[in-house]
């Protein structure tokens, strides 16, 4: 059962990292436009490459 000494902190820290990730995504406004995000996922890459081209 010594394995718990490694596994438990590992599990907790993974959970904590997940939570931090969620809080970061919330803070950066990723839940402000749920309808738009659904479409962005399947949109063509064109707008992105256009944007890069203009820079």
């Amino acid at each position: 059962m010594e394995v718990l000494i490694i596994l438990v902190p590992l599990a907790l820290s993974l959970g904590f990292v997940g939570l931090l990730g969620f809080l970061w995504s919330l803070k950066s406004g990723q839940y402000d436009d749920l309808d738009g995000a659904a479409w962005r996922a399947i949109a063509d890459d064109e707008p992105v490459s256009d944007h890069r081209g203009s820079k």
Binding site: D35, G36, W39, E46, H51
Partner: peptide
Amino acid sequence: NCAGCMAKIERNLSNIPDVTSARVNLTD
């Protein structure tokens, strides 16, 4: 009202020089 409008507007406006960000919020 659709993803097409969103892409069209963002592409067009971000092509204007000196525009650093143009982002559509489809929900609102």
